[in-house]
């Protein structure tokens, strides 16, 4: 199962503080869908462009179709804006 890590702020808002989860998912869209089933409302925040996701250390923004492997480590973090 992939290890999913949410930010402390997401934990506070949606999961009652839980930030580390093990989940069976295939790609980012699948992950968001499954997270929303568990924690209703979280999908909106994860998809409004304010969050990025790091899969096995690689940073992705707005990447629904990015694959998540069976042992991947997935971290959500605020989207990075630049100068």
């Amino acid at each position: 199962m992939a290890q999913i890590v949410l930010t402390n702020d997401l934990g506070r808002q949606f999961t009652g503080g839980e930030t580390t989860l093990d989940m069976d998912v295939t790609d980012v869209r699948d992950l968001i869908r499954k997270l929303d089933q568990k924690f209703p409302g979280i999908a909106e925040v994860l998809q409004d462009g304010s969050m990025a996701v790091a899969i096995d250390g690689n940073l992705h923004q707005d990447a629904w179709l990015e694959d998540i492997g069976p042992t991947s480590e997935v971290y959500f973090l605020p989207a990075i804006r630049g100068g």
């Binding site: 790091a54 250390g57 690689n58 480590e73 959500f76 973090l77």
Partner: peptide
């Protein structure tokens, strides 16, 4: 990294 993920 302090913001969550592991560095490549």
């Amino acid at each position: 990294a302090p913001y969550g993920p592991k560095f490549g």
